[in-house]
Simulated scan of single mutants.
Amino acid sequence: MRTVTVGTRGSTLALAQTRWVVARLKEEWPETDFRIQTISTKGDRDRASLGSLAQKGDKGFWVKEIEDALLTGRIDIAVHSLKDLPTEQPEGLEVSAIPKRVDARDVLIGKEGRKSLVQLPPGARVGTSSLRRKAFLRAYRPDLQVIDLRGNIDTRLAALGTGEYDAIILAAAGLIRTEMRHRIDEFIDPDILLPAPGQGALALETRADDDLSIEVAYAIHDHATDDRVTAEREFLAGLGAGCLAPVGAHASIKGGILTLEGWVGAPDGSQLIRATTSGDPAECADLGAELAADMLGQGAQALIEAARGEGTC
């Protein structure tokens, strides 16, 4: 029996995602022995420095050590949250599969009587560490206090009971994958809070010359998800922005047409640039690049620069 070692971060969410991936791979490759290896990343060890790392151009704080393990052969497949993966990859590595995406939306979890954005009174305290969420929430509800909330899913949920927050905002995908969907009080409409590029999607990364691992990973590739997230990530790349920027993007495919929406916001919510494009899903990369050029022409670069180093992904 051949063995394939799958690498991941050691957080509750990362392990849940990886176990899901391994279960799907096992269905396609029942004669293969899949082993999970956890790897500590710079982002896990030093969350307080994420902003300064981004300012220095270090975009791989969630993935570098995992990619190093791939390059040295310690693991065969890496599982990442796609939104954490830089748009440029190291030489010798490639994304070999994008599994089917789960819900890309953000969600609200609130205290009693404050279970939706509409129910939040003026001055309500909303917790998130994402600069994107802060910017877009401030644009929608400038009367809210949007304050930092850090840590893993369990830590953030526990923080709601401390009295410091009236509500918190998380990605739906994390709660769904960790079997905590029941904790969600409201799925926030993307017209209010546009998701991060690639949110809700996973990436299976391999060595570019490892034909076996590429074949194994590709067994759970989803073409429609790939087209959607390619458009979103090409939009992000075209802006020259990483995950530490107030940028949202979401692509959908209906009737054979891919529609991509992109937002860039000022950190304080005082300005929000929005644009949409659509076309053939086969042209997904070009659509993302074209939308980025459109946004840059509207002044998006100044908003991105103003936000550098102010928050975390």
Results as ranks from 00 to 15, higher is better:
L170H: 01
W62V: 00
G92F: 02
S252Q: 12
L144I: 12
S81W: 01
G92I: 11
E186A: 06
G110Y: 00
I98Y: 09
A158W: 04
M180F: 05
E164R: 12
E205Q: 14
L170E: 11
G110Q: 01
I273H: 01
C243I: 13
G43V: 00
D148I: 05
D286G: 04
A231N: 05
L287G: 07
E27N: 14
I66E: 03
K134N: 08
G299L: 10
A158F: 04
A292D: 02
L272A: 02
H250Q: 15
L258M: 12
D227G: 05
A292G: 07
C243G: 08
A124G: 13
E179V: 11
Q17D: 14
S129R: 13
G255F: 15
D106I: 01
A293F: 08
I184R: 00
E215N: 14
R9S: 09
E112D: 13
G151C: 01
A196P: 04
G198D: 03
E67S: 09
E290N: 10
M295Y: 06
G10T: 13
S270R: 12
A16M: 05
K115A: 04
L258Y: 05
I304S: 02
R138W: 13
D58I: 10
H80I: 06
A217Y: 01
P197L: 07
Q89G: 11
G7H: 03
V21Y: 04
D166M: 02
A16I: 07
L193Y: 07
T206R: 06
A275K: 00
V95R: 03
Q301F: 10
D185W: 00
D76L: 08
L108C: 03
D33W: 11
N152K: 03
L212F: 15
E205A: 13
A245W: 03
T259I: 09
T155Y: 01
R233Q: 11
R45A: 15
A69H: 08
T87H: 08
V107C: 01
L157P: 08
